[in-house]
Structure formats: structure tokens, C-alpha cells
Write a protein that binds this DNA or RNA. Sequence first.
DNA 1: AAGGAACTCAACCGCCAGCCC
DNA 2: AGGGCTGGCGGTTGAGTTCCT
Length: 351
Amino acid sequence: MGRAPCCDKANVKKGPWSPEEDAKLKEFIEKYGTGGNWIALPQKAGLKRCGKSCRLRWLNYLRPNIRHGEFSEEEDRIICSLYASIGSRWSVIAAQLPGRTDNDIKNYWNTKLKKKLLTMLPYFQEKSSFFPSIPFQPQPPSNDHLTSHQFLNNSSSFYTFSTPNFMNVDNTSNSLFVHEEHTSVTDLQSPVPPPPPLQLHANSLMCNNNTDVNDNCYSSYSMCNSPMQEYYHNSSAMKEGMFMFGSGNGACSSSEGGSCMGKISYGDYYKDHEEKQKYQIKQEEYQLALHDHVLGGQVQSQSFMIKNNHVTPLQNDLEEVKLPNFSNYLFHDGDENKTTHYQKGMCSYHY
DNA sequence: AAGGAACTCAACCGCCAGCCC
DNA sequence: AGGGCTGGCGGTTGAGTTCCT
């Protein structure tokens, strides 16, 4: 037996709203409010509509201070930045953009912003041809943890990463929290499910965070799908890890360019249940901002200094790349020597 | 000018969490 | 405690519009 429908489907109108219906709904809500019950509202308002449909119409179109129309560059940046951090949680993203609805942002992402990323695919494919697809199997959760040093050696990659400036990392609890002025995204702290089996490639960025405050080693590995190809073939990859190719003006702004922004998702693995309870990482999705480029037809390693929200290449005379407002995060690692690789504000990517 | 393709976006669908009885 | 109801959400659809050939 299926669930009971929320309304009498045969007796409700579907499809586009007429101006008369809009007026009725608007007038009713302005006069009486929603009454805390959308299901009962259409009958009270004299509308032959499903309550859910009324709610949607009000929230997405009729309520005051809704903004429609072109998205600004700044909004682009915010959307891309948040998408890279939290994925397709449109309501959370919309909360950061006054006047925008989650539906608007979702549509905008699906029809415009995402395409901007895909237009960069040929460039990435060219670049990725330099990387043989060497299967790399991440260590499954067990007591025999890879240290991040081993992990990183295996991946031949190391880097530091940064978080959006409304987030902060509590190294003592390995949790991510959100500044008060962004309380609408505090539910970022919801636990992250264990990562699915994932084949990583040599050109994947990987990272590890494997100590807690008591220097107990637990296994935590990152997932970062290699690539744009995987994203291209399976959009769910966007949820697990991705690269977003942006522009010289900052990730995902409208103009073309060569910078890219990656996302790292952390699975949290603990050596036992107790530690999991104690150190459960609520959600750790960090953004990596890096700038890679091709020199003489060969992909080169490139290091950057992230300072004042700008990425400055350390070794080459490249243009400075403006980033979204990221704060930097010092990677926490049990191996003290390893922190030398993780100088705060430094972003290195080697392959 | 016509018609097919591509795009846009409002609206719908169904799942899920939380509340209430 | 648990079942039903509701609101909220993300994914998807499809009608209307614009673009392209």
C-alpha cells in the first residue's frame, strides 16, 4: 500500500499559476498567514491547488523580496564555493544569497554554471593525458592505517587546503564548525557516511588526517575523484569529490581562465567505535584552491602561496589568481615532521 | 520562413525527518 | 513507542521560448 496522497489529485489544478490564483494566494497569506498548515490553506483560500503547490508558489515566486534575473559574479562565486563545500544543498546555499530561492539557484547551476565547468573539460582531458590511469586502491578502514605520510607518498601528491571563511576547523575535536553569522549552515556538522569504494588515480589529490588530539592514530582518508572525466560521466561524482575549473578571476566566474578549484571530502574512519563516538568528524569538506598550468606542453608541479585570498605562484611568473574568501587551514598530522609540508597558507601540488 | 534542437525555469514528484497524537 | 501527517528538500519533468540551420 502506498502512502496517502497529500491532496485529492483528481480535484486539484496542476500546471502554471494564473494571475488570479497568484492574487488569491498572496492576498490570503498577507491577511492570514499560512496558518501553519499548507495542506489546509488552499481550501481556505478558495484555491483548487495542492497545498504543496501553494507553498512552492509562495516561496519561489510570490513572497516579498524575491529576486529574479541575472546572477552577479559575486553570487557565482558564492554558489561555486558553497557547492564545492557542501554539494547540492540548495536550501543552504540559498540561505547565503538573500532573495534567491533554492529552486532558482538549482536551475541556475544546472543550466549555466555547470556548463561553464564542462566547457573546461577539453583542457582537462588534454592535461590528464599526461597521467596514466594508475589504479590506486585506498587503504580500507582497519587498524593498519596508512599514515598520511605513506598515503601521500603513494599518491605522490601533497598539498594543503583551505576552507571557506565562514567555516573553521577545531583541531581538538577534528570537527568543522561555522561562524555564528552563518548559523544557517550549522547543519554542515551532520556526519558524513563512510566513503564508498573508490578507485583513485595517480593524478588524484589525496590527503589524510590521521591523528586525534591524543595522538591516537586513526585512519581517515580523503576521496577525490580524478577527475573531470569521472565527473563528466557520473555527475554524482560531484558529491564525492571533484575539480571545478574556474577562471582567472576566481573559481567559476564567468570569464575563461586556467585556475581550478578542487574539493576534498573526508571520510572518517576510526580505530574503534569509542573513538568514533569521541572524535566523530561531523563533516569535513574542504576546498582546495590551486592553480595548475601547462608549461611547454608538459604539466609541471606548481606551488602557490595563499595570502589575502590570493593565490600567488611561487615558482613562475603567473598572474595572481583571486580566490573566494577562503581561510587557510593548517593540516593537522601526527607526524610532526610532516607539517613541514603543510605550511599554513602554502598550497603545493605535485605529481 | 520553417522546423528542429537546445535552453530555461516553473512546477511536480517522491523521499525523509520531525512533530504530534 | 509508533504510526500518521506535514513541511522541507533535491531531483526531475515538460511546456514555452530562443537559437540555429
